[in-house]
Write a protein that binds this DNA or RNA. Sequence first.
DNA 1: CTGTTAGCGCATTCAT
DNA 2: ATGAATGCGCTAACAG
Lengths: 339, 339
Amino acid sequence: MREVARLAGVSVSTVSAAINGTAIVSPRRAQKVREAMDVLDYHPDQVARSLKVGRTEVVGVVMPDITNAFYPEVIRGIEDAAGQAGYSVILCNSNEDPAREQRHLSTLFSRRVDGVLIACSDASTAYDSLIRKRFPIVFFDRLPADTNRGAVCTDNLDAARSATEHLLQLGHRNIAMITGNLLHSTHRDRLEGFRKAMQERHVAILNEYLRGGDLQTRSGYEASLELLRLPRPPTAIIASNNKMMLGLMRAIGELSLACPAQVSVIGFDDYAWTEYFTPRLTVVKQKTYDIGCRAMSMLLTQIGSEGGSDQGEVVQLKAELLIRESTAAPAAKRARVRR
Amino acid sequence: MREVARLAGVSVSTVSAAINGTAIVSPRRAQKVREAMDVLDYHPDQVARSLKVGRTEVVGVVMPDITNAFYPEVIRGIEDAAGQAGYSVILCNSNEDPAREQRHLSTLFSRRVDGVLIACSDASTAYDSLIRKRFPIVFFDRLPADTNRGAVCTDNLDAARSATEHLLQLGHRNIAMITGNLLHSTHRDRLEGFRKAMQERHVAILNEYLRGGDLQTRSGYEASLELLRLPRPPTAIIASNNKMMLGLMRAIGELSLACPAQVSVIGFDDYAWTEYFTPRLTVVKQKTYDIGCRAMSMLLTQIGSEGGSDQGEVVQLKAELLIRESTAAPAAKRARVRR
DNA sequence: CTGTTAGCGCATTCAT
DNA sequence: ATGAATGCGCTAACAG
């Protein structure tokens, strides 16, 4: 920077002012500065700047599993929103491991990120200290139990309810659900939505129709096998995440059942392949990109207001039910579809 | 840090030494320092440290499309290798846009990252200045034309050749390929491998059997439609990436063709869903995670040796052909499968 | 409008 | 083995 100043024949503060627009610099000198920067291929040192101004313009993003296609899409939203504000993103994969998540949080903190975006993989209490510190943070997708800070996620209860209602309207009564880890708000809400919808129609949920999975394909497969081998198997199954839905489809294939003729299926999340599956899958499509955008801009306002507003709002985005070919009226009730 | 020093009853330099193990500190004092750090919830300021030592222990990763499932998997590899070395990762999505890529590179540079991992979405010359600067950089997946720096990618030529040979062995002669953007080494090599294999068996490639796509599903779909409507349609098709394969499968479905009975299909990349497709897809599986790991550790050595070795090696990882159900002998030649 | 200067928090000589 | 002092590159306050 001193070099630039010398070459441009001005002082360092003028260079600084020219770069940041902090003060008014005469056009002529500004031009000279720009030229000098070009000649020297000078890039302002952000780390020195950060040290000085106390902001890094970097945020951390922590999530449980980047190979779950849901997250890359929200990352894209985050990145776009961040980029527009001149922010960069440090990515951290917690791998569903609370210890690892804590470690990541700690290094992010050391790196003096201005804020954190996180999809929890831990119990709620783990984030209390951060929240107390009024450190800018917004939760996305998975929320801790008592979210008194900003958060954005899908309205999972509503989403699951819509899915269930669709099934109910088709005439299904024996509906099962493969649930995810109920420690996570996401899957708790999804189960709740299922319950609500069934209750509203006064349809009972058999205990044996509720199976817990660990979000991986294998568990979805195993749960489905049990479900489908029941003396009175369900005529429709909802999977609480995309990987488990894949396991479900495999189980159906292995048992040589016809979908949707013998069993209807609804999954969560919509990817390129769901539409090309046989049958084309009926799914609940979340607004992944928007979740990322919204979360990021919410974080940005938190950073801007310096812990001003303590009570962050939690934004719930509606999901969309994409009705395709994996859901149909149950075999026995074909005649009276429109109840 | 001064606070810590005071509370521990030592000087700041002792604290520094205790934290970094730079000098020998008596166990008693080291203990006191640790306690003081705990009490004050002190986290060393990495940005100040970076400014001082001239290293940030951050690397930048630039890639064209994070929603292409290939990349998240290599990111996981990168992240794991980075984490072990105490490095963090700044993620940048170039969105296949060279201008955006350059902007990202520029901010990464300003942020004083210690090195960059990149899957190019630009012509080769764009990286020359970086290379000349001897800035630590390793290319992954897509390499610039004249890679004289470190790089790691799949042996795409070999991969495509294996795929083609499999088809040839099944008895196919009319084999088509939906190629990607030939500006990228990846797709150029894949085409080359296809050519080589055909040549070795003295089988001609019809011009009309080569269709270029833009890596997106839609283009794969359109190219496939053209291919399959040819007067003499191919009996087998290779898609140069996973999204285009999806388009291919859709085209097959729409034309009510049977796969593999009427047309065999091979795609690139293996995801959870390829195995659950109907038919289960024969694919070329790249070692995505390993690509990330290797690239990162290669970058780490470059960073370590401070531009010492100018000539970086390029590591080529073998891909694996997973033969499943989307490939079979061509209909007309069922009788003489084992040529 | 522009130049001079004092730290931001830390690692690192160099004395002690 | 430990402490005092110096400066990494930059911004912001202040003086010109």
